[in-house]
Design a protein around this nucleic acid. Structure first.
Length: 150
DNA sequence: GCCAACGTTGGC
DNA sequence: GCCAACGTTGGC
């Protein structure tokens, strides 16, 4: 799951209550479908800093609540307001994510590109903009064995 | 349903 | 700030 650290960073997650946050603001159907159809309580999540210096994986998290309507879509004051989504017919969903472990050092995009076995990882593909992307069990295993974790 | 125009993402 | 690679919108 990608976030620009200027909007929400690993430091923000560390400070959050129960080190848990609702992943609101997703306004892309494919990303929504991943959250709604694939993410289950206990699933692992890689917290990725995008448009950062460097961009890369900042933490490992876990799903603690499955998809439920994203109420920020109903708030005209909210930057993610979407008048097409109504409380009686929600379009957008969010999940709750809890911090499990942090990286001593960001696992940078460059490092991911150099790591054997990750060649096909979606986030490494050109033009891969989706803010919620699947990670295969093999990719997960390789990443969890990198030395950057605490 | 097609597709041009437009908006967004995100690495660089 | 640039711009490639998308996704969305809306006229037809």
């Amino acid at each position: 799951m990608k976030s620009e650290p200027s909007a929400f960073s690993i430091e923000d997650l560390k400070k959050a209550e129960n080190q848990t946050t609702s992943w609101d603001g997703v306004r892309n159907y494919q990303a929504r479908n991943f959250m709604r159809d694939k993410m289950r309580v206990g699933d692992g999540v890689l917290f990725y800093h995008s448009s950062a210096n460097p961009s890369g994986i900042a933490a490992g998290c876990s799903i603690v609540r499955e998809a439920y309507p994203d109420h920020t879509a109903w708030d005209p004051e909210n930057i993610h307001y979407d008048p097409k989504s109504l409380p009686e017919h929600p379009i957008w969903y969010m999940v709750d994510v809890k911090l499990i472990k942090t990286c001593r050092e960001i696992i940078s995009l460059e490092k991911l590109r150099k790591t054997h076995g990750l060649k096909n990882m979606m986030v490494l593909k050109k033009g891969s903009r989706l803010s919620v992307q699947p990670v295969t069990p093999d990719e997960w295993k390789i990443i969890m064995n990198l030395p950057e974790w605490e």
